[in-house]
């Protein structure tokens, strides 16, 4: 290329700027100190908020937050690909074994409560509440191809198609929902629109008058004016009679059953030894309560965060 001096010089000038940045590093030292988080989309709004606030407070910090679902995130954690996994359920024995085999130890930190919210389109005038029995009839594997109209759910409801939206199979929300509603984890009909990203589900339900879906409570909170919340009656008067809507109060007191749950961070011990991961986790636990409220999740009692901080600093569980 050296022979074609004038054109080559021009190209070199053009490329030089970007390349200098890309290769030499824009004059900033230390390229690798990035905190990587991945996992549940239910917890994504909180992790994103923490990452953003930390970034604004300390511009040198570098945090990435991905959405792979709880399954995907835990796989990456146990493969050593990420430092932190956000999970909307506890780790399964098989996953814990995978971590063991890879020699990765981790610490489990509860960071917020969540309820799975049942949502429909704002134009839906008929669905005032659903019972857990009805939900089971809608979502169980046997419902595939049979429960396809609203009138199949409850007589008197419109004889129009029922279009379902829900968490994808890599999502902890899916695990919890199937476990709580169908009775068996990972058992459900498959003819519904699924995504690990709740944003897409909200968009889907917003655009379809005949939709019924379930999303993390935070996603309902952020889209109150676009979604209709459907209260759930679990038929058990001991935790509140009648149909109950998810609210911070009903979720914390455990009356919004069976769709309340805890959300966790799983942090690799090896990563915790790195100061940037440690300071991210510390910042997370310090600000989780305020930021959870802001993004629509339900904070834990302050004592839970104190215990979690102690768990981070103690060398062993």
């Amino acid at each position: 290329m050296r022979g074609l001096t004038p054109p080559a010089a021009l190209v070199a000038q053009v490329a030089a700027g970007t390349l200098a940045c890309a290769l030499a590093g824009c004059g900033r030292p230390g390229g690798g100190a990035v905190v990587t988080a991945d996992g549940s989309s239910t917890l994504y709004p909180l992790s994103e908020a923490v990452a953003e606030d930390l970034q604004r407070a300390h511009p040198t910090t570098r945090v990435t937050v991905g959405i792979s679902g709880t399954d995907g995130g835990l796989q990456k954690l146990c493969a050593g690909d990420v430092d932190i996994c956000a999970a909307s359920r506890t780790i399964r024995p098989t996953e814990a074994q995978a971590c063991d085999r890879a020699g990765i130890t981790y610490v489990e930190l509860p960071v917020a409560f969540d309820g799975i919210a049942l949502v429909a389109n704002r134009k839906n005038t008929w669905a005032d509440h659903l019972t857990t029995a009805e939900l089971r009839r809608i979502w169980e594997p046997a419902a595939e191809g049979r429960v396809s109209r609203w009138s199949d759910v409850r007589p008197g409801w419109p004889e129009r198609p029922l279009r379902l939206f829900g968490a994808g199979v890599d999502s902890g929300t899916y695990d919890h929902f199937t476990h709580a509603i169908v009775g068996r984890m990972h058992a459900s009909r498959s003819d519904y629109t699924s995504s690990e990203d709740d944003n897409l589900l909200v968009t889907g339900v917003t655009g379809d008058e005949l939709a019924l879906g379930f999303v993390g409570y935070a996603y309902h909170e952020q889209n109150r004016d676009r979604l209709k919340l459907i209260p759930i009656d679990d038929g058990d008067p001991s935790n509140g009679a009648g149909a109950i809507s998810p609210t911070p109060d009903t979720i914390t007191r455990g009356t919004y059953q069976p769709l309340s749950r805890l959300l966790f961070l799983y942090v690799s011990r090896r990563s915790l030894a790195r100061p940037e991961v440690d300071s991210f986790v510390t910042f997370y636990l310090q600000h989780a309560a305020d930021l959870a409220r802001e993004v629509g999740l339900i904070p834990l009692p302050e004592s839970a965060y104190t215990r979690a901080r102690a768990r981070v600093t103690s060398p062993t569980e």
């Binding site: 890309a22 590093g25 390229g31 994504y44 970034q55 937050v65």
Partner: peptide, 13 residues
């Protein structure tokens, strides 16, 4: 992913 920083090396997110 959520990336709020500028890439500073070829290995950067």
């Amino acid at each position: 992913t959520y990336v709020a920083f500028l890439p500073d090396s070829v290995h950067s997110a």
